[in-house]
Amino acid sequence: MCDIAMESISNLLSKSPIIPACRSDKQLEDALCSEVNVIFLLESNISNFKEKIEAIKAVNKYAFVHFDLINGLSQDNSALEYLVDQCHPHGIITTRKNLIMTGKKLGLYTIQRMFLIDTTSITSAISMAKNTKPDAIEILPGIAPKVIRAIKNKIETPIITGGLITNSVEIVNALKAGAVGVSVSRQSLWSSVE
């Protein structure tokens, strides 16, 4: 089990709503030394995911792994059980409904990632969040405060946003629109936003 007691994702992000989204070893190394509370591990493979997750946990940060992007593992329930057995991350990020359900059964935080490209995808995202009941949804791209507000008005699920964010104004606008967190890859944006 996790070595940090579970609380709501909103609470995890209340003091530090910025989430480093790490694709490279250098990004992860920098995120481990940052003041953030949660780290998204976006890329890993079957030979290094355990080491990366353990490094995040070793500095008392919450480790969320984008399960769909672990090279060498299929995206099925058995592979998720294997991940949990090997290193038990605090949570997963996935686009797959079945993995949200399995992750919840395994005691993980679950974040359902959704790509919003038109009004139909927004309606679908709202419906999916109501059905799967993840701990949070992550909507991409993150530069549309109008969309964040529209979804927030229809569901109670906490919203994280990310993608295409290039400056602190976009982070502030996402948070003002109702997002509880913003995932960003740019290290220059990982410090607190006022």
Results as ranks from 00 to 15, higher is better:
Met1Glu: 11
Asp3Glu: 14
Ala5Trp: 10
Glu7Gln: 15
Glu7Val: 15
Leu13Val: 06
Ser14Thr: 11
Lys15Phe: 05
Pro17Thr: 07
Pro17Ile: 01
Ile18Ser: 02
Pro20Met: 09
Pro20Ile: 00
Asp25Val: 09
Lys26Gln: 14
Gln27Pro: 04
Asp30Thr: 08
Ala31Leu: 01
Cys33Arg: 15
Ser34Lys: 01
Val38Arg: 00
Phe40Met: 05
Phe40Ala: 02
Leu42Tyr: 03
Leu42Arg: 04
Glu43Tyr: 15
Asn45Gln: 08
Ile46Tyr: 13
Asn48Phe: 04
Glu54Thr: 12
Glu54Tyr: 08
Glu54Arg: 04
Lys57Phe: 09
Lys57Thr: 14
Val59Ser: 08
Val59Thr: 10
Lys61Glu: 06
Val65Ala: 06
His66Leu: 10
Phe67Pro: 02
Phe67Glu: 02
Ile70Pro: 01
Ile70Trp: 01
Gly72Asn: 08
Leu73Phe: 07
Ser78Ile: 12
Leu80Asn: 07
Glu81Ala: 13
Tyr82Asp: 12
Gln86Phe: 02
Gln86Thr: 14
His90Glu: 15
Thr95Val: 14
Thr95Leu: 11
Arg96Ala: 11
Thr102Asn: 14
Lys105Asn: 08
Leu108Asn: 07
Tyr109Leu: 05
Ile111Cys: 06
Met114Ala: 14
Met114Pro: 06
Phe115Thr: 00
Leu116Pro: 10
Thr119Cys: 08
Ser121Gln: 14
Thr123His: 14
Ile126Thr: 09
Met128Val: 11
Lys130Gly: 03
Asn131Cys: 07
Lys133Asp: 12
Asp135Met: 09
Asp135Glu: 09
Asp135Tyr: 03
Asp135Asn: 07
Ile137Gln: 01
Ile139Ala: 05
Leu140Asn: 04
Pro141Asp: 07
Gly142Ile: 08
Lys146Asn: 15
Lys146Leu: 13
Lys146Pro: 06
Arg149Trp: 01
Arg149Pro: 02
Ile151Asn: 01
Ile151Lys: 02
Asn153Ala: 11
Lys154Ala: 15
Thr157His: 04
Pro158Phe: 02
Ile159Arg: 05
Ile159Gly: 00
Ile160Val: 07
Ile160Asn: 00
Thr161Ile: 06
Thr161Met: 03
Gly162Arg: 00
Gly162Cys: 02
Ile165Pro: 00
Ile171Pro: 03
Val172Ser: 14
Asn173Trp: 03
Asn173Lys: 04
Ala174Met: 10
Ala179Tyr: 01
Val182Ala: 04
Val184His: 01
Ser185Arg: 10
Ser188Thr: 14
Leu189Ala: 06
Leu189Asn: 09
Ser191Gln: 15
